[in-house]
C-alpha cells in the first residue's frame, strides 16, 4: 500500500513559514498516495519560482526545468510513457506570463496531464513584483504607484482553450484541495487546477483571511460549459472554488495515429532495410 510517507522527500522545503505551497506539497503527496500511485510512477515537472522548487522536496521523479516551460516537458513525458502519472506544477508568473502559450495549447491538445498552479498573485522568489494575476491597483516593487494592468483570469483562459477539467482550490482548505487534486489526476485529459496560495511575505492583500471570507463551494453542473464560464468570472465578495468543469473528450495521446494505445518507450526501434530505401531509386 502506498502512503503519504512514501512521498516524503529527503530535503526539507525552504519556503517561508506559512507559505501556501506547504499545503499543496502535502495535498499532492496525499492525493497520489490515496490513488495508490507509486512514487516511481509519478513525475512532477516544474518551472522556476518559489512553488516550482517543489520537486526538490518530494520523493518521485522530478524535473525542475525552466521558467514557464513545464508543460511541454510534461506533455512529452506523457507521450513517451503514458503509464506515468504526470503533474505540471508552477506559479502564476511562470505559467501565465512566460508559459501562456504552452498553457493555452496544452489545454487545447487535451494532453492527459494535471497542471496545478500555485497562484499567489505576485512574484515571490524575485522578491515581490506584479504578476499576471496581481490585482488592479496593488502596490508592488514593480508597481509602486499601483498595478494598472487588469489581472488575467486563468480559468476562463483554460475554458476557452478547450480544457476538459477546470478547477480552483485554496491552500487554506487542505482537505478540499487534496480531493480536487485527486479528481484532476483521475481525469482523462488535461486537468487544470488554479490554487489560491497566499504569499505571506509579498502579498498583504490576498491573504488567508481574504480568501477564507470569500471562497464558497457552489453546487454546479460540471458538464455545463456556460455555468462553468460564469462561475469562473465570479470575483469579489464571493469566489467559487472546487471543480467547475469536468467533461470527457479524447485526449491527445488516444487520438495520435502512432501512440494511441501504445507507449513510445515500449515501441522497439524500426529495423531499416533496403525496402525502406526503394522510394529513392
Amino acid at each position: 500500500m502506498v502512503t503519504i510517507a512514501d512521498y516524503k522527500g529527503k530535503v526539507k522545503p525552504d519556503w517561508c513559514p506559512g507559505c501556501g505551497n506547504f499545503a499543496q506539497l502535502s495535498a499532492i503527496s496525499g492525493a497520489l498516495a490515496d490513488l495508490g500511485i507509486e512514487p516511481k510512477d509519478s513525475v512532477i515537472t516544474s518551472g522556476i519560482g518559489c512553488s516550482s522548487n517543489l520537486p526538490e522536496f518530494i520523493n518521485l521523479y522530478g524535473f525542475h526545468g525552466l521558467h514557464g516551460r513545464l508543460l511541454p516537458v510534461a506533455s512529452a513525458i506523457k507521450w513517451a510513457n503514458p503509464k506515468l502519472t504526470v503533474i505540471g506544477y508552477g506559479g502564476d508568473g511562470d505559467g501565465f506570463f512566460e508559459g501562456t502559450q504552452h498553457f493555452y495549447h496544452t489545454a487545447k491538445r487535451n494532453v492527459d496531464i494535471t497542471y496545478i498552479v500555485s497562484d499567489n498573485q505576485i512574484f515571490g522568489l524575485t522578491t515581490g513584483q506584479a504578476s499576471p494575476t496581481t490585482e488592479l491597483g496593488m502596490k508592488t516593487k514593480s508597481t509602486p504607484d499601483g498595478n494598472i494592468e487588469k489581472p488575467l483570469n486563468p480559468l476562463t483562459i483554460a475554458l476557452t482553450a478547450g480544457a476538459t477539467f477546470v478547477a480552483r482550490a485554496f491552500s487554506g482548505d487542505a482537505l478540499h484541495l487534496k480531493e480536487v487534486i485527486k479528481k484532476g489526476i483521475q481525469h482523462k485529459g488535461f486537468s487544470f487546477i488554479d490554487v489560491f496560495s497566499p504569499c505571506v511575505t509579498y502579498n498583504k492583500i490576498n491573504t488567508y483571511d481574504y480568501f477564507r471570507k470569500r471562497v464558497y463551494k457552489p453546487d454546479t453542473d460540471t458538464k455545463d460549459f456556460n455555468k462553468a464560464y460564469s462561475l469562473a468570472q465570479e470575483w469579489g465578495e464571493k469566489i467559487p472554488i472546487g471543480v467547475l468543469y469536468d467533461v470527457e473528450g479524447p485526449s491527445y495521446e488516444t487520438s495520435d495515429p502512432v501512440i494511441a494505445g501504445k507507449a513510445l518507450i515500449d515501441i522497439p526501434p524500426v529495423k531499416l532495410t533496403k525496402e525502406h530505401l526503394a522510394e529513392f531509386l
Binding site: R69, V73, A74, S75, A76, W79, A80, N81, H102, P269
Partner: peptide, 17 residues
C-alpha cells in the same frame, strides 16, 4: 521553445527524441 522542451522531456523519460 516548446519543441526543444518536449524533446528534452522525452529524452528524460527514456525515449530518443
Amino acid at each position: 521553445i516548446s519543441a526543444i522542451n518536449m524533446a528534452i522531456g522525452a529524452n528524460f523519460a527514456g525515449v530518443r527524441a
